[in-house]
Simulated scan of single mutants.
Amino acid sequence: MTSIYLAGKIGPNDWREDIVPGIQDAWGGHYGHAWREDGIDWPVLPNGALSLFDYTGPYFVDTCSHSADGCGQSEHRAGSECDGDYGERDATLRRCLRSIDRSDVVFAWLQDLTAYGTLTEIGYAKGRGKNVIVASPEKPGMVNDFYQDAMSGRDSHALCMHNLWFAFTLADTFIKASTPLEALKQYADLNPQLESPIEEAFWREFLTSKPEELNGLKAQQPVFDGRYRIDFALPDDKIGIELDGYTWHSNPKAFTQDRARQRELELHGWRIIRFSGAEVNSDAGDCVRQAAQLAASFRRREKP
């Protein structure tokens, strides 16, 4: 399972709560005041982020639901409590860096112009060779764009975003989205948790060619309330693509179960396209092209 660190400003009604349910209880509720002890690291929540990624941090302790009226504080930092004591910043910093060290991906939501700690996290993650994803409602333009925007009277926040250009250049991937939740879902759709080398080869070719007939293709698509998973699917059209690796499908019991599953899917209106592992290994691009042609053919047959 891929592990992820969510960098970005921490504040009232923090956006991480939409991505990591129970984030506050996972640290403050369980550990109480243990956050003050520097030797204790933040926990890793298996499948904690979107039920797709192991969540590594940051965490924050909150006794007033991030309400400025509740404690007189206007902002809350990772690992802090609403008792007016921000004194353990060094311990919090070390926890942040150690959490980044044990993460595969660092996802940074960069919108607040005062998110100075986020800039440090992005730079540290890049230096440690992590996969850095930067997401924002907009991406800073070049110098000429800055002057054009200034002359056109664009708002000051948008103009100041240009000053963050260096952080965006460190990103392995930039995602434009209106919210962090939307951005992370986009990333998850493009980077599914694949189970075999032939699935990875097929997905790489799909991302390279992106045939129009396969728009909306999902990987590891759950069906029947999660009882089955289809390797790749167009859920709205009920078209599935299955890749048959030799190791799994050479087992007689697995072969029988696979065929029973396909019959059940077909009874519920699914059309299944199958490729052997040998076909994918030989020419994954051709498999993607054939899948696109067959998907288009299925759709044509449905038209009156």
Results as ranks from 00 to 15, higher is better:
33 H>A: 15
295 A>P: 03
185 K>C: 12
190 L>P: 03
62 D>G: 09
229 R>Y: 15
115 A>W: 00
75 E>S: 12
140 P>F: 01
275 F>G: 05
256 T>D: 12
183 A>F: 08
165 W>S: 15
15 W>P: 00
235 P>Q: 08
86 Y>T: 11
175 I>N: 01
279 E>I: 00
253 K>R: 01
94 R>Q: 11
142 M>D: 11
180 P>L: 13
33 H>L: 15
264 E>S: 08
261 R>D: 03
39 G>V: 09
153 G>N: 05
120 T>Q: 12
45 L>I: 14
143 V>T: 09
247 T>P: 02
36 R>Y: 09
52 L>F: 08
23 I>M: 10
154 R>T: 05
76 H>I: 10
98 R>D: 00
55 Y>G: 04
218 K>Q: 15
141 G>N: 02
267 L>S: 11
162 H>N: 08
252 P>G: 06
39 G>E: 14
66 H>A: 14
178 S>P: 00
154 R>F: 05
272 I>N: 04
93 L>H: 12
200 E>V: 12
108 A>F: 06
238 K>A: 06
163 N>M: 13
120 T>Y: 09
87 G>T: 13
63 T>I: 07
61 V>D: 03
138 E>Q: 14
233 A>G: 01
53 F>K: 05
59 Y>M: 09
108 A>E: 02
240 G>C: 06
27 W>Q: 08
30 H>G: 05
259 R>T: 03
239 I>K: 03
279 E>C: 00
6 L>K: 02
52 L>N: 03
149 D>Y: 11
242 E>K: 10
148 Q>M: 14
227 R>T: 08
67 S>T: 01
14 D>E: 01
283 D>G: 07
107 F>M: 10
208 T>W: 10
278 A>P: 00
129 G>E: 05
196 S>T: 13
218 K>N: 07
83 D>E: 01
301 R>D: 15
98 R>F: 07
243 L>N: 01
169 T>I: 08
51 S>C: 07
146 F>R: 05
187 Y>I: 08
160 C>R: 13
183 A>D: 05
100 I>N: 04
248 W>P: 13
207 L>T: 10
40 I>A: 07
128 R>H: 14
12 P>L: 13
227 R>I: 07
225 D>N: 04
260 A>L: 15
6 L>I: 02
7 A>Q: 02
110 L>A: 09
241 I>G: 06
83 D>M: 03
46 P>S: 13
28 G>E: 06
272 I>V: 15
145 D>M: 11
302 E>V: 07
78 A>P: 08
304 P>K: 04
161 M>I: 09
79 G>P: 02
70 G>A: 10
88 E>H: 15
17 E>Y: 00
13 N>E: 13
138 E>A: 08
203 W>G: 06
245 G>D: 14
152 S>M: 12
283 D>C: 12
292 A>Q: 13
278 A>V: 02
44 V>W: 03
187 Y>R: 08
101 D>H: 07
234 L>I: 09
168 F>C: 05
47 N>Y: 09
